[in-house]
């Protein structure tokens, strides 16, 4: 049995203007197969990745925001979003998509995957990892 490591994917960039957000999500999806302890962090412009109502029809680029809602099926259920980063951008939790997962340890109850945390809590989460992958 191989050891389980804590992986944190740090997302600090907005979607579409650059490819980092999409290719980060691709790593998360592939990484889910490795049964590690996975968390995602969204701070700075990374919080823009999770906003509602993204519509990319006119720019001709694939809208990958619905994929975040599928992460629960991959057992990726910890999406930490920094409150200060939202506030600095005039956003609040209600501007973000609803992302949920079914908790197998709690009779498959539907629970929110997005957890709004303070900057200090985000620093603690970062300090609790084995591997930090930045995008």
């Amino acid at each position: 049995m191989s050891e389980v490591k804590k992986f944190l994917y740090v997302n600090r960039k907005a979607p579409y203007g650059t490819i980092y957000a999409l290719e980060s999500l691709e790593v998360v999806l592939i990484g889910a197969a490795f049964d590690q302890d996975v968390s995602l962090a969204f701070l700075d412009d990374g919080v823009f990745q999770l906003t509602r109502n993204q519509n990319t029809e006119t720019i001709g680029v694939k809208n990958f925001s619905p994929t975040f809602r599928a992460l629960g099926d991959y057992d990726v259920t910890k999406l930490y979003v920094e409150r200060e980063s939202l506030a600095e951008r005039g956003l609040s939790e209600s501007d973000l998509q609803e992302i949920t997962y079914e908790d197998e340890d709690d009779d498959w109850a539907e629970k929110p995957s997005i957890r709004i945390v303070s900057r200090a809590e985000m620093a603690d989460i970062m300090a609790d990892q084995d591997v930090v992958l930045s995008f």
């Binding site: 992986f7 790593v27 592939i30 197969a33 490795f34 591997v131 930045s134």
Partner: peptide, 20 residues
């Protein structure tokens, strides 16, 4: 090769350093 090689590297090494 695939992205799995990245995750595997994270699992098998003591430190991971990203240059970007």
């Amino acid at each position: 090769s695939g992205l799995g090689q990245l995750i595997e590297m994270g699992i098998q090494t003591d430190r991971l350093v990203t240059f970007g």
